[in-house]
């Protein structure tokens, strides 16, 4: 079971992280007209690095429990506006739309990688 999850590996984590980032960017777009709203985003590279350090703790005795370590929730940061607007809103539509379309594209790429991994596994299981 572990080898299967190792095989799928980082792509599954990346996919859920991409989906969370999509939701954040959608929140920014939803709040484009709200005064004093500050646009949020995450540092994807840092978050994916955090996830790759997660896993069960190494044990040196069979009575030890291999507890799962979690890197904690992803930290949500604030976007630095190129040009701040008068009403305190830091959503810049051009920036958000570009980030959103890039993130969607990367989500699809990750999904394709994941699909390839799964179909590779299926081929191995069937042995055809």
């Amino acid at each position: 079971m572990k080898s299967i999850s190792n095989h799928i590996g980082i792509y599954a984590d990346a996919l859920s992280l991409r989906s969370k980032r999509n939701e954040m960017l959608a929140s920014n777009i939803a709040n484009a007209a709200t005064p004093n709203f500050k646009a949020r985003d995450m540092n994807f590279d840092a978050e994916i690095r955090k996830i790759s350090h997660e896993g069960p703790m190494r044990t040196s005795d069979e009575r030890h429990f291999p507890l799962m370590t979690k890197g904690g929730r992803e930290s949500v940061l604030y976007r630095q506006p190129l040009q701040a607007s008068k009403d305190g809103n830091t959503v810049e539509m051009n920036v958000e739309q570009m980030e959103f379309s890039e993130n969607v594209m990367r989500y699809q790429t990750t999904l394709t990688f994941l699909n390839n991994r799964i179909s590779g596994l299926m081929t191995a299981i069937r042995g055809e």
Partner: peptide, 15 residues
């Protein structure tokens, strides 16, 4: 702005 969760800062919000 209406935040999804004020305690856990999830970044999810709507207007």
């Amino acid at each position: 702005t209406k935040f999804a969760d004020n305690v856990k800062d999830s970044g999810l919000s709507t207007t």
